[in-house]
């Protein structure tokens, strides 16, 4: 498989007052097209930092991150914005829908930002919320909001979908629904999905699992038989 993105010897240090926090220590990996990757690790292990670096909203202290011909570690803010706009879809733990836009408008916003978007109305149907198209986020349940957030992320037709604890704020039944959407997107649209979680059960749906601990990528496990979201429970 062709690597979509390569991270080589990346480190990330934060300065907190007089203390330097080493969030990532010499991490290297490759992410391939059409893969579903789960990043697993306890709090403070460096998984969110990694996701943010992959998404171009965080810069590395050293090392390189290469997406196609673009070196993220050398790109200026404009290039990083363009990278996020054209290639990256984000899904957040707290959905981050724009409160002033309806369900459909939140999805359509992504379409306006993308050069090759998918149909917002169709996506709304796919996430099962066609009847909520004119509802504002504050009138939707948590699960419904996350499904809208997924549709928004997918609408850009991104090459890489980055999900930061997408089920973290949901009950298990709604969480499964969300994972089904993500897995379905990966398989049917043949896109790459990177998903952060601290829930080991969710890792069973991944093609590969990255294990992070204390800022290091401890190991990468390939899952020979990824499960369907319906098949897992937590």
């Amino acid at each position: 498989m062709k690597p979509l993105l390569q991270a080589e010897h990346i480190t990330k240090d934060y300065q907190l007052g007089e203390v330097t926090v080493h969030a990532l220590k010499d991490v290297s990996f490759e992410i391939y097209e059409k893969e579903l990757i789960v990043i697993l690790g306890p709090s403070g292990s460096g998984k969110s930092t990694t996701l943010n670096i992959l998404g171009g909203i965080e810069t590395v202290t050293s090392g390189s991150v290469i997406y196609g011909s673009l070196k993220l570690n050398k790109a200026d803010p404009q290039k990083l914005t363009a990278y996020r706009r054209e290639h990256i879809g984000f899904i957040f733990q707290f959905y981050n829908l724009l409160p002033g836009l309806t369900a459909l408008e939140n999805i359509a916003l992504s379409a306006e930002l993308s050069n090759h978007p998918l149909d917002p109305g169709k996506l709304l149907e796919e996430v099962g919320l066609a009847d909520r198209r004119d509802h504002f986020p504050n009138r939707l349940s948590g699960g419904e909001q996350q499904r809208i957030a997924i549709a928004r992320a997918l609408c850009k037709n991104p090459d890489l979908l980055l999900c930061d604890e997408p089920t973290g704020a949901l009950d298990s039944r709604t969480g499964v629904q969300v994972l089904k959407l993500l897995e379905g997107f990966c398989r049917s649209y043949e896109k790459t999905v990177v998903l952060i979680t601290h829930n080991r059960d969710i890792a069973r749906i991944a093609d590969r699992v990255f294990y992070f601990k204390d800022g290091r990528l401890e190991k990468i496990e390939t899952n020979p038989d990824p499960k369907k979201p319906d098949e897992i429970m937590w």
Binding site: Q78, T81, R84, R85, F92, L98, L109, S110, L113
Partner: peptide, 14 residues
């Protein structure tokens, strides 16, 4: 902040 930050993450330019 969150609203503006989200828009920037989604790729909205300055």
């Amino acid at each position: 902040y969150t609203e503006i930050g989200t828009l920037r993450v989604l790729g909205m330019t300055h």
